[in-house]
Amino acid sequence: MLEGKVKWSNSEKGFGFIEVEGQDDVFVHFSAIQGEGFKTLEEGQAVSFEIVEGNRGPQAANVTKEA
């Protein structure tokens, strides 16, 4: 699992980007967020995730919010 911080997200469009130190930003779709209820990410929020190869390149999977 990698750790990063949410660079920005748009809940209306359903995606955002995660900033990882020393690496390119990672695309995240809201379907990759683990948990119940409305899935949102806040700018600056710490997250853990895996990287998978998506249709348009690397993207985050199994995203969990850190406490």
Score class of each variant (00 low, 15 high):
Ile33Val: 11
Ser48Tyr: 14
Asp24Ala: 14
Phe38His: 11
Gly37Thr: 09
Ala32Ser: 10
Glu21Phe: 12
Gly4Ser: 02
Glu43Trp: 14
Gly14Cys: 13
Ile18Glu: 01
Lys5Tyr: 11
Ser11Thr: 13
Gly44Ile: 01
Phe27Ile: 01
Asn10Asp: 09
Glu19Asn: 06
Val28Pro: 01
Leu2Lys: 10
Leu2Asn: 06
Asp25Asn: 07
Gln59Trp: 07
Ser11His: 14
Glu66Asn: 14
Phe17Met: 05
Ile18Asn: 01
Glu66Trp: 14
Val28Cys: 06
Asn55Arg: 15
Gly57His: 04
Met1Asp: 03
Phe27His: 01
Val26Thr: 04
Gly4Val: 03
Gly44Asp: 03
Gly16Lys: 02
Glu53Gly: 07
Glu12Gln: 13
Gly14Thr: 14
Gly16Arg: 01
Gly35Val: 06
Ser48Phe: 14
Thr40Tyr: 12
Lys7Gly: 03
Glu50Ser: 11
Thr40His: 10
Ala61Ile: 12
Lys13Leu: 11
Ser48Arg: 15
Phe15Lys: 00
Asp25Trp: 08
Gly57Tyr: 04
Leu2Thr: 08
Gln23Lys: 10
Lys13Glu: 05
Val47Glu: 01
Ile33Cys: 05
Lys7Arg: 09
Asp24Phe: 10
Val28His: 03
Gly14Asn: 10
Lys39Trp: 11
Glu36His: 11
Lys65Ala: 11
Val52Cys: 10
Lys13Ser: 06
Phe49Asp: 00
Gly35Gln: 07
Glu42Ser: 11
Arg56Gly: 07
Gly22Pro: 02
Glu53Ser: 11
Ile33Ser: 03
Gly14Asp: 03
Pro58Asp: 04
Val52Leu: 07
Ile18Gly: 00
Gly14Lys: 12
Ala32Val: 07
Ala60Trp: 01
Asn62Gly: 05
Ser9Ile: 15
Glu42Met: 12
Met1Ser: 09
Glu19Cys: 13
Gly54Ser: 09
Val26Ala: 01
Trp8Lys: 00
Glu19Ala: 14
Gly4Pro: 01
His29Gln: 05
Val26Phe: 04
Glu43Gly: 08
Val6Phe: 05
Asp25Lys: 03
Met1Val: 13
Glu3Phe: 15
Glu12Asp: 10
Glu12Pro: 07
Thr40Ala: 08
Val6Ala: 01
Glu3Asp: 09
Glu53Asn: 12
Gly35Met: 08
His29Leu: 09
Phe30Leu: 04
Phe17Leu: 04
Glu43Ala: 15
Phe38Arg: 11
Gln45Asn: 08
Gln34Val: 14
Gly37Ala: 09
Trp8Tyr: 13
Gly54Ala: 06
Lys65Asp: 03
Glu12Ala: 14
Asp25Leu: 07
Ala61Arg: 10
Met1Glu: 05
Ile51Pro: 01
Ala32Cys: 08
Phe30Val: 06
Thr40Phe: 13
Asn55Asp: 12
Gly35His: 06
Leu2Ala: 07
Glu36Gln: 11
Ala61Trp: 10
Gly37Pro: 07
Trp8Leu: 02
Gln45Leu: 07
Val63Asp: 00
Thr40Pro: 04
Ser11Gly: 09
Ser9Lys: 13
Gly22Val: 01
Gly35Trp: 10
His29Asn: 05
Glu19Leu: 11
Glu3Pro: 08
Phe17Asp: 00
Glu43Gln: 14
Lys5Ile: 14
Glu53Leu: 14
Gln23Asn: 08
Asn10Val: 05
Ile33His: 02
Ala61Tyr: 09
Phe30Gly: 01
Glu3Trp: 15
Ile51Ala: 02
Val63Met: 03
Val63Ala: 03
Val47Asn: 00
Ile18Thr: 03
Trp8Asn: 00
Pro58Ala: 07
Lys7Trp: 05
Ser11Cys: 14
Met1Cys: 13
Phe27Pro: 00
Gly4Glu: 01
Leu41Asp: 01
Ala67Trp: 11
Gln45Tyr: 06
Ala67Gln: 12
Arg56Thr: 07
Val28Glu: 02
Asn62Trp: 08
Lys39Glu: 09
Glu43Lys: 15
Glu53Arg: 10
Asn10Tyr: 06
Gly35Lys: 04
Val28Ser: 01
Ser31Ile: 03
Gly35Tyr: 06
Ala67Pro: 13
Lys13Met: 09
Ser11Trp: 13
Val6Pro: 00
Phe30Gln: 03
Ser48Met: 13
Glu53Met: 15
Asn10Phe: 08
Glu19Arg: 13
Ile33Phe: 08
Phe15Thr: 02
His29Arg: 06
Glu53Asp: 10
Gly14Ile: 06
Ile33Asn: 03
Lys39Asn: 10
Phe30Ala: 03
Ser9Thr: 15
Leu2Trp: 13
Gly44Arg: 04
Met1Gly: 07
Val20Thr: 07
Glu36Met: 10
Phe15Cys: 05
Val63Phe: 02
Glu19Lys: 13
Lys5Pro: 03
Val47Gln: 01
Gly57Cys: 06
Gly44Val: 02
Ile51Lys: 05
Thr64Cys: 09
Ile51Trp: 05
Glu43Cys: 15
Phe15Gln: 02
Ile18Cys: 03
Gly57Val: 02
Ala61Thr: 09
Asn62Val: 05
Pro58Asn: 06
Gly22Trp: 05
Lys65Trp: 11
Gly16Cys: 06
Glu12Tyr: 12
Glu21Thr: 10
Gln45His: 06
Asp24Ile: 10
His29Pro: 08
Glu21Ser: 10
Ala67Val: 13
Gln23Leu: 11
Lys13Phe: 09
Gly37Ser: 08
Thr40Trp: 13
Val28Asp: 01
Gln45Asp: 14
Gly4Ala: 02
Val26Met: 03
Glu43Val: 15
Ser48Gln: 12
Glu3Ala: 14
Val47Phe: 03
Val28Gln: 01
Asn55Gln: 12
Val28Trp: 15
Thr40Asp: 08
Pro58Leu: 10
Arg56Leu: 09
Ala60Cys: 04
Glu66Cys: 15
Gly57Thr: 03
Val28Gly: 02
Ile18Trp: 02
Ser11Ile: 14
Gly54Trp: 07
Gly35Ser: 08
Glu21Ile: 11
